[in-house]
Design a protein around this nucleic acid. Structure first.
Lengths: 242, 242
DNA sequence: CCTATATAGTGGTATAGACAACTAGTATTT
DNA sequence: AAATACTAGTTGTCTATACCACTATATAGG
């Protein structure tokens, strides 16, 4: 239900409402959505505002438009066949490996400007910087640095830190994770990575960077992670539909 | 230049004009674009129309916006969005770049056992082996080797080979591509790759391997590709939902 | 010289309306 | 029964305007 008193933009609320109907199964692939004018009348908002909500859902691949016909729910398979957003721990368990990690550093800092920007934070806001060696069945496979805004996690001590941050967020804080935007690139290992991953000078690593967003106010960034994976022991696999 | 008499939508013309400035190098990464209001005044069009053009360029990753500051040209590092199965040519065009390729080798061979297995072929079956340098706006970005079974493509000469194999399959052969299974890993460039991509010894490359399948009953493997992308110029991007 | 405030710029969000182009259903004509 | 025309719906494109929130710069005051 669109609430004009809410601080959330109206287009965003409408988009979320439609997403919820899709998630719950109340709207199934192929179903026709109400028209733009119907939404505008129903919520007493402008058709352009409705269109912005619809545009966002189209961009996310959840719905599609046909001129002169209407707006339809997209085939669910498109989304389902993408690899889902999981934490390192969840990934390793899925592969039948024992995930563990060795904490190298845990501190509350004022991060650099790029990190502030990635997390949509203002100047002087603090984040937890956590540096860990990620291991699969006792073999170091990645060096990971994650940044979590203090305002998301609150006051936490090193001993409090969970192995799976995503489960912590969902179960202990009761927040909902929406999605992550991630890039993968290849770089040469830094000295720091070389020493902690037991690899040689000149070895490449797979550098994965991910910003994870909450399911709330326009997608609060929850965490920014940089992980350098041993390229000799790690590759990513995925299926993409045509 | 925006021409209101043109049958093309105004927002589309403006988007193309900006793309052309980016392509030509006249606008470089980090450059500030004229403001939305400036474009609106310059072409005597509404700010909402300008915003639509800008929205499209943002969605394509060519530019980015900063509230209160302006709209900027995005970094040119090539990012492949791993949302859908597309050919190299299709990806580059989507990015406003001119895809092209230089053919190094084209031959009908009996491949090694691993390639036979990847393509679900029996012993002694032949495949086309095509080795190309893939270029984006005349810059070599990848070395690609693809294997296509003779029984899929039939008798073809080198000159017949299309730039976009997927479009060829769908339009000329009337077949339907279903999906591709792909892996991404980081390796050090081979000598062959080093010489053709103009990179130094010890440079990493992103190695992408993909098997593409048709939409028929046994999901016939259509193509097996190995591509080595310059790691300094290429990264993959994706969004994953929770 | 430093700090606070004001101003002028930016993008973000929203409203209201109009016309074009397309689609699907219905009515009419042959 | 089939073809054609009409109508009412849809999305697509565009205009004009207003206000909010943010950022950067200039200016004034201590």
């Amino acid at each position: 239900m669109v609430n004009k008193q809410s601080p959330l933009p109206i287009y965003y609320q409408l988009a979320e409402e439609i997403k919820q109907l899709i998630r719950s199964g109340e709207l199934a692939p192929g179903d026709l959505l109400p028209s733009e004018r119907e939404y505008a009348e129903k919520y007493n908002i402008s058709r352009m505002t409705v269109r912005q909500a619809i545009n966002n859902l189209v961009t996310e691949g959840l719905i599609y438009r046909q001129k002169g016909r209407g707006t339809f729910i997209a085939d669910r398979k498109f989304e389902q066949n993408l690899a889902g957003l999981t934490s390192f721990s969840e990934d390793m368990k899925k592969r039948g490996l024992t995930p563990s990690s060795k904490l190298l550093s845990f501190q509350l800092i004022e991060p650099d400007e790029a990190t502030l920007e990635n997390l949509s934070l203002g100047a002087n806001e603090k984040v937890y910087e956590i540096v860990r060696i990620r291991m699969a069945s006792d073999l170091p496979v990645a060096v990971e640095t994650s940044y979590i805004p203090w305002k998301v996690a609150g006051d936490l001590q090193e001993a409090d830190w969970p192995d799976s941050f995503y489960q912590f967020i969902e179960e202990k804080l009761g927040l909902t994770i929406a999605y992550g935007d991630q890039t993968i690139e290849a770089v040469l290992a830094s000295d720091f990575e070389i020493s902690h991953l037991n690899i040689e000078q000149g070895s490449p690593v797979l550098l994965m960077q991910r910003i994870t967003h909450l399911h709330d106010e326009p997608k609060t960034p929850l965490e920014y992670v940089k992980s350098a994976y041993r390229a000799d022991k790690y590759k990513f696999r995925m299926r993409m539909n045509r």
